[in-house]
Design a protein around this nucleic acid. Structure first.
Lengths: 210, 210
DNA sequence: TGTACATCAGTGAACGCGCGTTCACTGATGTAC
DNA sequence: TGTACATCAGTGAACGCGCGTTCACTGATGTAC
């Protein structure tokens, strides 16, 4: 039995990671098997020793976020015992609508990156997408000041604003309007949903300093 | 001079209309020249008597919305003299976040449909997209109770919620969660931004009746 | 410890298909007489 | 009013390229002796 199981699963993980980064940046259709194998330091043909199809690696990439970064985010959000609930929600929103998250397309949340790929993708991808969004909603739900149906509703629309705001900002040119949308969403998410003022965002701080 | 100018521009308009519908439904990459020409009752080759490239017809389709339906929407929104400002904003939000608008992908707002195609498209498309979004923001801005910077900020985040909420709802399976997002966005847009309760939406009315 | 062997991850050429685009041709239509 | 003509929108076959997938082959690696 040449090549240990360890080796194979390591390589597979490397491919998934390349795939995740590239799909995130360019979307499903605009990434080729060649590209993602090259990014993983391999060549075209070897791909099919690990995955049955391009669609399969897309599903794996989505799932990998769900169980990797996504899970970490989820865990961290529930962790700090000194912070109040609304404090936690506020941190989540600030991190989601941060300038970094708008800029760094490689590591962004797949809810943003895959939004329009998902309807055409297979059931596994759709399931992952749904699961991830539900996770986000639950997380908000648990950390809002409201309870019951009111909390659920706010959690849903807050998720829509966070994810949707980023999708829209991405579609706009980088000349100010995108940032304007992001900052407006951040401020209103804070004041309208969480009932508190957002601390000045990085972009706003720089504007004041100037 | 065979075929009148009229004839040529009629046919061109028919192609643009087919393109708009198909691009709206399937996105730029998943519509073929064959399909859109067939939809217009023509064949492949004739396309290039009207447009230089696929990208060109995409730009034309985007612009056609801007000058057609988009302009109508804009005009209507400013028209009813008996309605107050906030009343107008409320109507706009209700129409944008309506169940019909979620379902009828052919006639939806291109801000939703093209969100992820735009960053990869040419400058004309990007310009149209930006212009359309700015139009929406101005429209909200002019109809909110606030004034100045506060109004602009609310207009921006309201646009993000409307467009983004629809994009996200589209990406979710049609089994309830998509509707839940839409209705939550609608209700919170009404209560948090406009300071009023939304009348019961069609879906909610049906739920109550059952 | 060293060597022959079997396995299978990885290689890169090749296949096949879809689709944007081109092109030689056709035929419908407006104009000139 | 009718007919020959010129134009060019429209046709559909063909081209060319990109890319997902396949396949015969290679060679690295673990195992058996």
């Amino acid at each position: 039995m040449p090549y240990s199981k360890q080796h194979k699963s390591d390589v597979r993980a490397r491919i998934v990671e390349s795939a995740r980064r590239l799909f995130n940046r360019h979307g499903f259709d605009h990434v080729t098997i060649d590209q993602l194998m090259a990014e993983a330091g391999l060549t075209r043909g070897g791909f099919y020793a690990h995955f049955r199809s391009k669609e399969a690696v897309f599903a794996a990439a989505t799932a990998s976020f769900l169980n990797g970064r996504g899970a970490i985010w989820r865990d961290e959000a529930g962790v700090d015992p000194t912070a109040g609930q609304v404090e936690m929600a506020q941190r989540m929103v600030e991190s989601y609508l941060s300038r970094d998250h708008l800029t760094q397309t490689e590591d962004q949340c797949p809810l943003i990156a895959y939004a329009t790929d998902v309807p055409r993708a297979g059931p596994k991808v759709q399931e992952s997408y749904r699961e991830l969004l539900e996770g986000m909603v639950s997380l908000f739900d648990a950390n809002l000041a409201e309870t019951g149906a009111a909390s659920r509703q706010k959690a849903l629309s807050l998720a829509a604003l966070c994810v949707g705001g980023m999708v829209v900002a991405r579609a706009l040119p980088n000349d100010g309007i995108a940032e304007e949308i992001r900052v407006a969403a951040l401020n209103d998410a804070s004041s309208l949903w969480l009932g508190k003022d957002a601390p000045l965002d990085q972009t706003q701080q720089e504007a004041q300093a100037a």
